[in-house]
Design a protein around this nucleic acid. Structure first.
Lengths: 134, 134
DNA sequence: TACTAACCACTTTGTGACACTTTATGACAG
DNA sequence: CTGTCATAAAGTGTCACAAAGTGGTTAGTA
């Protein structure tokens, strides 16, 4: 109802998965999706529920694919996106995504609620970003 | 449902083929096509599923074939296009196409999802293009 | 009791090697 | 010239192994 709220710290298992906090899961259950899209941006990962991603996608599809600049815009978002799904309460961060976001297998991560989506930060980058705030 | 997403790195075998990622293959299966059209543009190859190519084709057919500039546009796309097909889960990049895109047999390539189509880049050109972004 | 973390066995997907089939090329006998 | 044959080149399919992803059990923790 209120979307994704709060900050959670957790760690990845030996395959690069983490347990999705119950509060996040229940947001998704309300929207009846376990299908998500994960994409990279500015140093962290963003996870969209299907519906929220669809809104994004429509905007991209209105662009002109024969225009080079428009293609670049599409490529920037889409090339970094992956479909992911919560399975057994866990979410796998695919190897590609881990690499671009500098998250290690079995590493520490921070989950950040952003209402209609949530973010995944490597703990280190999160701490750095927090410092820069002040 | 979401079309072609993500970036994949792979390499060509000694005959110039690569394994199409399952995620891409399942997009095609949903559209019930293994028939594709591959063409060259701005340094990389674009692969269209049959249906998406048809849309392109219509746009080209609306052009004026008695006008020299329009003919050039048509020629640019069509003369470089080839029908290709996924066989045993692999896609062969014909010798012509490899040459124009500067991809070697047994070379490294990058596959880039673009929703309704996907691109094939030589690894080198991809890295160059990525750098130019920033 | 409900959640988490760690472990392990299993399944799916990707990789590289190799052998086979088909198509193209060129030489030469009729 | 024309057909055929040997050879080379291009294209196709399969398999075994490695890597990635999945699911379930257990024990610890709050």
């Amino acid at each position: 109802m209120n979307g994704f709220l709060g900050t959670y710290q957790t760690s990845l298992d030996d395959k690069g998965r983490f347990n999705v906090p119950v509060k996040f899961r229940s947001v998704l259950e309300k929207e009846c999706t376990s299908q998500l899209v994960m994409t990279y941006m500015n140093g962290y990962l963003i996870v969209f529920p299907q519906k929220e991603w669809a809104r994004n996608k429509e905007r991209l599809q209105d662009l002109d694919t024969t225009n080079n600049d428009d293609r670049k815009k599409i490529r920037k978002i889409v090339s970094r996106a992956v479909e992911v799904e919560i399975k057994s309460g866990k979410l796998l961060i695919p190897a590609n995504q881990r690499d671009t976001a500098e998250i290690d297998v079995q590493g520490e991560i921070v989950l950040v609620g952003m209402l209609e989506s949530f973010e995944i930060w490597s703990k280190q980058r999160w701490l750095e970003a927090e410092q820069d705030e002040d």
